[in-house]
Nucleic acid binder design. Structure first.
Length: 226
DNA sequence: GCGACAG
DNA sequence: ATCTTGTCGC
């Protein structure tokens, strides 16, 4: 599929933050999202090593949204060119993820990202960045808290509580399985929070994490190994 | 000023 | 993310 060019690349955290601030106005937020996507892609990255220079493998797995069967897979390997800094996490994974997306013959109706969308210090997490670069609907599904405050949602699958930053709703804490630790859902691009949570529930018939990310996680892990 | 801090 | 044994439970 076609991906927007990565024209400039930051060499300092300050430049990275400036890029986020410059791209943020390109987001389409609170527009109706894909309620019944035909295909959904999961993205994930595995690492070998630490800091800059770590080897990494980025995987994209496209599933049929109805049957959850694999339609297409893509993996790319590379080297981290940016250190891990909370809030700038995307700059570590973006180049390799885009390479994997580029090799896709399919154009997914929705991208499910590891991490956050607008639930981010500058409202521009990985899911937002990938959304602007692909112009596809994207959502972020985080496994642990980042920014914002929340109360625990009820114990049943489908229970939610708002993720708040002051008075602003930046995401939703969503229980995907009964009595299982919830996930953090936030919108990235071209969708709304209700649709995003609906999509995540549709992708979690059995496990805590979306089937898309589980598949991508395995694929990226295997790619690093052999 | 001191911690906390997506993956 | 990754380093890591056994263990409890469906």
């Amino acid at each position: 599929m076609k991906v927007r060019d990565l024209h400039e690349w930051p060499s300092t955290p300050e430049e990275a933050e400036a890029i986020q601030d410059r791209l943020r106005p390109l987001l389409h937020l609170d527009v109706p999202g894909p309620t019944t996507p035909r295909t959904v892609a999961g993205l994930d990255v595995s690492y070998a090593g630490d800091g800059t220079g770590a080897r990494l493998a980025a995987a994209v797995v496209v599933l049929d949204a109805t049957t959850l069967e694999v339609i297409e897979e893509s993996v790319a390997t590379g080297t981290a060119t940016f250190p891990y800094l909370p809030g700038l996490f995307a700059f570590r994974e973006l180049p390799t993820l885009l390479a994997a997306l580029n090799d896709l013959t399919t154009t997914p109706d929705l991208l499910v990202c590891d991490g956050f969308g607008v639930a981010h210090p500058r409202r521009f997490g990985l899911a937002c960045h990938l959304g602007v670069l692909t112009d596809l609907p994207t959502i972020g599904v985080g496994k642990t808290a980042f920014i914002g405050t929340h109360t625990d949602p009820g114990p049943r699958r489908g229970d939610t509580s708002p993720l708040l930053d002051e008075d602003e709703t930046i995401g939703r804490v969503l229980r995907t399985q009964h009595n299982v630790r919830p996930v953090f859902v936030s919108v990235g691009h071209r969708t709304d929070l209700d649709t995003a949570c609906r999509n995540v529930l549709d992708l979690t018939p059995r496990y805590r994490l979306p089937e898309t990310t589980r598949r991508a996680d395995r694929l990226s892990r295997d790619a690093l190994a052999g």
